[in-house]
Amino acid sequence: MIRPDAPVLLEIHDLQARVEDQPILKGVSLTVRAGEIHAVMGRNGSGKSTLSKVLAGHPAYTVTGGTVHYLGEDLLSLEPELRARAGLFLGFQYPVEIPGVSNLEFLRVATNARRAGKGEEELDTFAFEDLVRERLQVVQMDPAFLERSVNEGFSGGEKKRNEILQMALLDPLVAVLDETDSGLDIDALRIVAGGVNHLAGPDNATLLITHYQRLLDVITPDYVHVMAAGRILRTGGKELALELEERGYDWVDAELAALERTPAEVL
């Protein structure tokens, strides 16, 4: 939902970042207001996943230029855990397994960290159990998953559902979902997308990072951005995604080549 007067939640300006010595982001700018759903599309290696990691504060990525403001504050100076407590959420493309740490305990600690960030009081074990059981329905997850170690032995679809469950519990203001659709069969995709739609509201925003149109068939974006070689090449409405689907990414390459020949002209 686009409302030009809605408050800006996330403001990315000319963001540049590298991993080791390899520059990946070469100047990304993006404004996200409350209530909006953005889709960031692009080929593998275009920098979409890096964008999500940099926003969440992954230590392997070094920001070399530009700014990111989140709720008006400098996001990049915050430790990853403080970003999360302030309501920034990253749904991982490959959620890691953490043997020995109970999923329930993990969810409770994370939820309470976020509640503290919102100035709410901690939930005790019982109150949390009630909450988690209610939120499980958003992703139609079996409560048995709570008793297991975090993501350990979960199938790809179960891991993604566990991500959306975390999103449901952490109540983010900006959710960045990195290839949430990858590796999902059609039923799991529907459940995950249903969860995302359920959680999207007028006060929060979602950034979907995806390769394919199929996720956008079930979650309708307000904006579609096409990334290539570390930049947003083009921004449009949902029809841009359809155009990509139809024409493939080849025209992106052509446009990119033009850009690299005469950057001043295009920019």
Binding site: E79, R85, F92, P95, V96, I98, V101, F106, G117
Partner: peptide, 27 residues
């Protein structure tokens, strides 16, 4: 204990030290 596991816990609001300690106590 991998950096990715720690980052995962951190990105859920759990401080670095607490993340390590959760993993070690679990172990």
């Amino acid at each position: 204990i991998s950096a990715d596991q720690l980052f995962y816990l951190q990105s859920r609001g759990i401080a670095f030290e607490e993340a390590v300690s959760m993993m070690v106590s679990g172990f």
